[in-house]
Amino acid sequence: MAEGPRPKRKREEEAGAAPHGGTVTAPFPLAELRLRRVLRESARDKAVFLHGEVTSPSGEGTDAVVILEKTPFQEEKVSDLLKKHTKLDLQMRNDIYSTYHLYPPVELSEIKTTVVYPATEKHLQKYLRQEVHLIRETWEDYKNITLPFIQSQSFSIQWVYNILEKKAEADRIIHENPDPCNGFVLVPDFKWNQNQLDDLYLIALIHRREVKSLRDLTAEHIPLLRNILQEGKEAVVKHFGVPGSQLRIYLHYQPSYYHLHVHFTALGYDAPGSSVERAHLLADVIDNLAMDSMYYQKRALTFALRADELLFKKFQEAGRV
């Protein structure tokens, strides 16, 4: 199934408000969820995106998005998987080849579950299967279409500020450079459960608040970017034993939220958003800025947009699609 860049999971949208604002404290009532429809499924990511509804005692229904995702195998548990009361049903045998359905015990059958609750129509559209289009954005397009669109929208990034100010997730910070101009914090992304290194995923959030995306970067930001690249690699090898040569370190354009951040993923992990139409390697970004301070204010940038996204409609209205 052809898929566009899977939107990055915004923490204030998908984990509820509890980690950041403290407004959601009760566990999600999964047993009371009524399935409305399957928004999307991904065979590649072994994930399904569901639209459900929770009915309150008063009879009022509240929408929810539930994402079910198979977790990667953990090497240290494979032996248990093969030995601990695992049921094996033969499906087919042909010469030396055979296939089975394996039913592991409950403790080895984990499914990562992410909940957006209450969910708005915007959340539902975000995860609904959509046609995807490539956009070639010139600098003029950015000034006349993209930037006014960003400025007109109320994109909440309070969860980012909560992390930077240690109001939330302080215990999850892997590394921090506190310099207000050239510093950042490095935290695990919510897509990574930290149980194995195969799908390692961390995010570097800069302290500066005026830098929204790749388009804002100039040679002035090279010290900041070099700090992220060097200190980030050192922190990952120190904490997780993964060398820099086995990391993919990149920025998204378009990003899913407009506060500059850098992705650190395991090189062998086919992470969502790591495809060529969205990911820009940090080392290449630094080299480009060193050659030309205004590099990202001059060149055209290509990215994918879903057909239902407002920004895509803005490009359509401008005759650029």
Rank of each mutant, 00 (worst) to 15 (best):
M1H: 08
M1R: 12
E3G: 03
G4K: 07
R9M: 14
E12R: 01
A17D: 07
A18Q: 01
G21K: 02
G22F: 03
T23L: 00
V24H: 11
A26V: 05
P29E: 01
E32H: 11
E32S: 12
L35M: 15
L35W: 15
L35K: 02
L35E: 08
R37T: 13
R40C: 04
R40E: 06
E41I: 02
K46A: 13
A47M: 12
V48S: 02
E53W: 10
P57Q: 14
S58D: 13
D63K: 06
V65D: 09
V65N: 09
V65S: 10
I67C: 01
K70F: 03
F73H: 10
Q74E: 13
E75F: 04
S79Q: 15
D80F: 13
K83Q: 14
K84Y: 14
T86G: 14
D89H: 13
R93N: 07
Y97K: 15
H101K: 12
E107W: 12
I111M: 08
K112E: 10
T114W: 00
V115A: 00
Y117Q: 03
P118L: 02
T120N: 06
K122G: 00
K122Y: 05
K122F: 00
Q125M: 11
L128P: 04
E131C: 03
E131F: 04
V132C: 15
R136G: 02
E137L: 03
W139Y: 11
K143E: 08
I145H: 10
I145K: 07
P148H: 08
F149R: 07
I150Y: 09
I150K: 00
I150P: 09
I150S: 01
I150L: 15
Q158G: 09
N162T: 09
I163Y: 02
L164I: 14
E165G: 04
K166R: 14
A170S: 14
A170V: 02
R172P: 02
I173D: 05
E176N: 01
E176M: 07
E176D: 05
E176R: 06
P180E: 05
G183T: 01
F190M: 12
F190G: 02
F190Y: 00
N193K: 03
Q196W: 00
L197K: 11
D198W: 08
D198M: 07
D198T: 10
I206H: 04
R208M: 08
V211H: 02
V211Y: 06
S213Y: 06
T218I: 06
I222R: 11
L225S: 02
R226N: 10
I228W: 00
E231D: 14
E231T: 09
G232C: 08
G232P: 05
K233V: 01
E234V: 08
A235G: 09
V237M: 05
P243F: 09
S245D: 13
Q246K: 15
R248D: 05
R248K: 15
Y253V: 06
Y258N: 15
H261W: 07
V262K: 02
F264H: 02
A266W: 00
L267D: 03
S274V: 11
S274R: 12
V276N: 12
V276C: 09
E277H: 12
A279T: 12
A283D: 15
D284P: 04
I286G: 04
I286M: 01
I286A: 06
N288L: 06
L289G: 14
A290I: 03
L301A: 04
T302L: 04
T302N: 10
T302A: 04
A304V: 07
L305Y: 07
E309N: 07
K313A: 13
Q316L: 12
E317S: 13
G319I: 06
R320E: 05
